[in-house]
Amino acid sequence: MASQGTKRSYEQMETDGERQNATEIRASVGKMIDGIGRFYIQMCTELKLSDYEGRLIQNSLTIERMVLSAFDERRNKYLEEHPSAGKDPKKTGGPIYKRVDRKWMRELVLYDKEEIRRIWRQANNGDDATAGLTHMMIWHSNLNDTTYQRTRALVRTGMDPRMCSLMQGSTLPRRSGAAGAAVKGVGTMVMELIRMIKRGINDRNFWRGENGRKTRSAYERMCNILKGKFQTAAQRAMMDQVRESRNPGNAEIEDLIFLARSALILRGSVAHKSCLPACVYGPAVASGYDFEKEGYSLVGIDPFKLLQNSQVYSLIRPNENPAHKSQLVWMACNSAAFEDLRVLSFIRGTKVSPRGKLSTRGVQIASNENMDAMESSTLELRSRYWAIRTRSGGNTNQQRASAGQISVQPAFSVQRNLPFDKPTIMAAFTGNTEGRTSDMRAEIIRMMEGAKPEEMSFQGRGVFELSDERAANPIVPSFDMSNEGSYFFGDNAEEYDN
């Protein structure tokens, strides 16, 4: 993207840094990872977990959730003011799984939030270390993106479920800051804005008074975040219109849905970061690795190297396929839920299948599930090659597409044709070009129609051997075009429920 120079890199967003050079960025990201790792080690000690239990991804998720809940100030305040039966607002906890007599047992633990905050700050040299908290939120978000298709949420806001490739980060909490905003897809931002506008339509006082002023500035800020994701002048001009509207209503909703559809071809720039579970960072720190000293990046080879040398386990339900569970977590670790499966298959070195073909449910185990038949197995999170994460949407291309997802959002900077089903997408653009945004709409449609099938995206960008740390010898991959490109292809993934 041309304006790259004016933006802070995501590592800076990730670490609240002012302008830093590459070495400083690597050190501050490393410091953040160190903090998460030290916190995780301490929690495993508190909970008396064995090494194996500490490497269980379900335990990692519970521990991450506990610290996120302990620092969720708004919710904590709300819980104190609106006490609900049987919930102690000062405590947080969740299921911890232990191996007892050759069987997995679930144990519900409860801790004072104050105590968890103390352990977290102690692991982070006394700081609140917001960057580390956001990092864990993005890992949870990436896992949700890989596990669930947001059909219901899309339909509720009037969008087409086939636009799911635009929904990265749709389950990120509001408090995820600049680093969170960077990884949100165009569809996620559109959905947040539509929800806001709908509230304004239904509630006369939404934009009024002292609160209304705050609401208005939040609305304009979200519009600017979305505008910054678009790469064409016409899309940005249309966002200006939406932002400046005196009284946002149905016309703005129409414009936003139009823009979301246009992003299936004229893709937005959305950041991709490899955020790993805390149970990967903990053992690495415990083994003596100093992330701050060595430096770390979320968008280069580092996460690949770390996963190459990590042992992570997962509980497996009786009829689940461990290899499929591994694929789910591998995609989440690489922030690749909406990437082209052919690119992923090449990088991973084994075939990556669409969601609907995987015999696996989510990673988390519900409290009512029976533990008797639970097994555990090693997650295979290694890769054959590594590639640089991208934040450009890439230019655009036609490809055989599917009944489910009709476009992709690249996660890796790797040369390819970008699949999208042009006739299906263009069919949504018939007729409606009147109104105050008509010239911009016409211009956007013209650009979409001009998108050429034979153009290559990320020209000359390749993948790298894991021994090639400096990215000196790019390998331009070859793809098996007979395979499906979309992950949520004609899909039956479970729906995400809060």
Results as ranks from 00 to 15, higher is better:
residue 321 N to D: 14
residue 492 N to Y: 15
residue 246 R to C: 13
residue 371 M to G: 06
residue 455 E to Y: 08
residue 270 V to L: 14
residue 104 W to N: 05
residue 453 P to C: 15
residue 61 L to V: 15
residue 213 R to Q: 04
residue 55 R to T: 02
residue 451 A to N: 08
residue 465 E to Q: 08
residue 231 Q to R: 14
residue 235 Q to Y: 09
residue 374 M to K: 07
residue 110 L to D: 07
residue 140 H to V: 06
residue 25 I to T: 03
residue 462 G to A: 06
residue 223 C to E: 12
residue 121 R to F: 06
residue 113 K to G: 08
residue 410 P to C: 00
residue 253 I to F: 05
residue 316 I to V: 03
residue 333 C to S: 02
residue 87 K to M: 15
residue 72 D to R: 04
residue 343 V to C: 12
residue 45 T to D: 04
residue 46 E to W: 10
residue 302 D to N: 12
residue 60 S to E: 07
residue 463 V to C: 04
residue 216 R to F: 10
residue 441 R to W: 12
residue 3 S to W: 12
residue 466 L to A: 01
residue 279 C to Y: 12
residue 301 I to Q: 06
residue 394 G to S: 04
residue 305 K to F: 05
residue 442 A to I: 00
residue 149 Q to I: 08
residue 119 I to Y: 10
residue 193 L to W: 04
residue 350 T to C: 01
residue 166 L to M: 04
residue 329 V to P: 15
residue 31 K to N: 03
residue 186 V to W: 07
residue 313 Y to F: 03
residue 196 M to Q: 02
residue 110 L to E: 10
residue 459 Q to A: 00
residue 378 T to A: 06
residue 314 S to W: 12
residue 141 S to G: 00
residue 225 I to F: 14
residue 305 K to S: 05
residue 398 Q to W: 01
residue 476 V to Y: 12
residue 110 L to G: 10
residue 333 C to R: 15
residue 423 P to G: 14
residue 255 D to H: 07
residue 397 N to M: 01
residue 32 M to N: 10
residue 292 E to C: 01
residue 96 I to W: 08
residue 83 P to G: 00
residue 320 E to Q: 13
residue 158 G to C: 14
residue 105 M to L: 01
residue 366 A to E: 04
residue 228 G to S: 14
residue 276 L to W: 12
residue 12 Q to V: 00
residue 459 Q to P: 02
residue 404 G to W: 13
residue 136 M to F: 00
residue 239 M to F: 09
residue 184 K to C: 13
residue 137 M to A: 03
residue 307 L to S: 11
residue 190 V to D: 06
residue 188 T to F: 13
residue 291 F to H: 13
residue 110 L to H: 13
residue 396 T to G: 04
residue 467 S to C: 03
residue 85 A to H: 15
residue 411 A to L: 09
residue 341 L to V: 13
residue 232 T to C: 13
residue 84 S to I: 07
residue 304 F to M: 15
residue 183 V to S: 15
residue 270 V to H: 07
residue 342 R to G: 02
residue 197 I to E: 12
residue 119 I to F: 15
residue 409 Q to Y: 00
residue 393 G to E: 14
residue 150 R to W: 05
residue 354 P to Q: 05
residue 128 D to P: 00
residue 56 L to C: 00
residue 33 I to V: 14
residue 340 D to V: 15
residue 132 G to T: 03
residue 29 V to G: 07
residue 241 Q to K: 05
residue 206 F to T: 01
residue 111 Y to L: 15
residue 294 E to S: 00
residue 286 A to G: 00
residue 402 S to N: 12
residue 391 R to V: 08
residue 57 I to T: 13
residue 432 N to H: 08
residue 206 F to I: 14
residue 175 R to P: 15
residue 299 V to D: 10
residue 49 L to F: 09
residue 356 G to W: 08
residue 77 K to F: 14
residue 392 S to R: 14
residue 137 M to Q: 07
residue 474 P to K: 12
residue 400 R to K: 08
residue 177 G to N: 05
residue 91 K to W: 07
residue 379 L to R: 15
residue 342 R to I: 04
residue 238 M to P: 02
residue 476 V to E: 14
residue 18 E to L: 00
residue 454 E to Q: 01
residue 200 G to P: 15
residue 97 Y to N: 13
residue 181 A to P: 15
residue 309 N to V: 01
residue 151 T to K: 02
residue 132 G to C: 09
residue 439 D to N: 06
residue 325 K to L: 08
residue 175 R to S: 06
residue 85 A to W: 07
residue 450 G to R: 00
residue 395 N to V: 04
residue 433 T to S: 02
residue 225 I to R: 12
residue 262 S to D: 10
residue 366 A to L: 04
residue 466 L to F: 14
residue 402 S to T: 05
residue 203 D to Q: 07
residue 437 T to A: 14
residue 232 T to A: 15
residue 114 E to M: 04
residue 232 T to L: 02
residue 230 F to W: 04
residue 277 P to T: 03
residue 290 D to R: 09
residue 380 E to L: 08
residue 59 N to W: 07
residue 493 A to E: 03
residue 392 S to Q: 06
residue 471 A to Y: 10
residue 455 E to A: 03
